[in-house]
């Protein structure tokens, strides 16, 4: 199973990028499952199911931080995708907290940023950009060459090693390199761990425990299925 985690600010174009990617991966005979993590409203799972006929799932995180929920449920999510017969799991995160990064070691982390958010946006982002493997700049047809280049220079400054892609995802332009990156990405094996240390906080995820899976944590938890529960002493 390959794990692709896609994050980025709301309405930056994550879904359009993933739809484009999904279409191309399916054409190349990959089997895809799609998991959407959002706080209170999402219809993307239905869109993917309807358009591509692939297994989809969504999780509402309610009062919890979406990246927090991501850590708790991703292990279960991979098992679910496995059972569904997928060989690539696409995870789309709500991406509300820019201090966190939901990317997993051994998986592919994609951050989607719209160039129309202002030239300084990359400089304002932390790990969600600096720990990504690929940064996709979307809506490139709407903005001047100058602003595009300043935006890109900002990304390079924050994340010198990230692979920067420019895309007009609605029209599927500039998506192929991402598809290749996913195909080259190794299978995810062994214990799942976050790429980055989470920000300071008071729960076991927030204090920096990187293990994936609710079994590894204390406090207010949840599994992929079912409600929140408390585990502790």
């Amino acid at each position: 199973m390959k794990l692709v985690v896609c994050a980025g600010p709301p309405s930056s174009g994550k879904t359009s990028v993933l739809k484009s990617v999904c279409g191309k991966l399916l054409q190349r005979e990959n089997k895809i499952a799609y998991l959407k993590i959002d706080t209170q409203y999402a219809i993307e799972d239905e869109i993917f199911k309807k358009e591509f006929g692939i297994p989809t799932k969504k999780v509402y995180t309610g009062d919890l931080c979406p990246d927090h929920v991501n850590v708790l449920i991703l292990g279960d999510g991979l098992n679910w995708a496995e059972k569904e017969g997928a060989d690539v799991l696409l995870v789309e995160s709500a991406g509300l907290c820019l201090r966190c990064a939901p990317y997993v070691e051994g998986g592919l982390g994609i951050v989607v940023l719209e160039v129309t958010s202002g030239m300084q946006l990359p400089l304002k982002l932390g790990p969600i950009l600096s720990l990504a493997d690929a940064a996709v700049m979307t809506k490139i047809d709407l903005i001047s060459q100058a602003e595009k280049e300043v935006f890109r220079a900002g990304i390079n400054k924050v994340a010198p090693n990230v692979c920067v892609l420019e895309a007009d995802a609605l029209h599927g332009i500039g998506i192929s390199p991402l598809v290749k990156m996913i195909e080259r990405c190794p299978e995810i094996v062994g214990e799942l761990r976050l790429k980055g240390v989470p920000p300071l906080g008071v729960c076991t995820i927030c204090i920096g425990k990187k293990e994936i899976g609710w079994e590894k944590h204390f406090g207010i938890l949840r599994a992929l299925e079912g409600d929140l529960f408390y585990r502790g002493e």
């Binding site: 903005i143 692979c163 920067v164 892609l165």
Partner: peptide, 24 residues
């Protein structure tokens, strides 16, 4: 080369469409 195709920094093309504008 894929390196040029995929690296926007090396892309030798500028494109201006009817939607393109300045936001600054």
């Amino acid at each position: 080369l894929e390196e040029i195709r995929n690296n926007p920094h090396k892309n030798p093309i500028a494109r201006i469409t009817q939607h393109t504008t300045f936001l600054s």
